[in-house]
């Protein structure tokens, strides 16, 4: 099956900061004169996305379908929801689940880097909860 083309899911505007933006990030695209970008859509595993030439038009726009998104694999537990929302703003939480087990200090450093260096807007109370969650589920046993 062909994944839906990005045009239909296109949204305008900058999507930084608000909660709805965080949740919409998965399917929203951004448009400027020369390009359209940031369009992702949930996808099923194990299907080959076969080329469908008749869907293409002979204009000057060169496009690809939405980039596939796969379900978050964050471990269940206290703090999962905060981690999902706040750590899924700029990248998928797969950035967390693909890491090797990291020490408590390393997780603290990661969360602090996201906030200070990358400017992640995460309230202190949520940040503490996230660090606690990461230490419990993603540190060496």
């Amino acid at each position: 099956m062909k994944r839906p083309r990005s045009t239909k899911r296109l949204r305008l505007g900058l999507l930084v900061g608000t909660t709805s933006a965080l949740l919409a990030a998965g399917t929203a695209g951004i448009l400027c004169a020369q390009s359209r970008y940031g369009n992702y859509a949930p996808a099923a595993l194990g299907q080959l996305d076969q080329a469908v030439p008749q869907a293409l038009r002979e204009d000057s726009t060169f496009s690809v379908s939405a980039f596939p998104l796969y379900p978050s694999e964050l471990a269940a537990g206290e703090g999962q929801q905060e981690t999902n929302i706040f750590c899924g703003q700029c990248h998928s939480t797969r950035y967390i689940t693909t890491q090797p087990p990291l020490s408590s200090a390393a997780w603290e450093a990661v969360v602090s880097k996201m906030r200070k260096t990358y400017g992640a807007g995460i309230p202190e109370s949520a940040a503490q909860k996230i660090v606690q969650y990461l230490k419990i589920h993603y540190s060496p046993k």
């Binding site: 990005s6 004169a33 020369q34 390009s35 369009n39 726009t61 690809v64 379908s65 980039f67 990248h91």
Partner: peptide, 14 residues
């Protein structure tokens, strides 16, 4: 960064 182009209009791209 997650804003990767899905489409580029070569008439406007420079």
């Amino acid at each position: 960064l997650d804003g990767i182009p899905n489409a580029i209009d070569l008439k406007n791209w420079r």
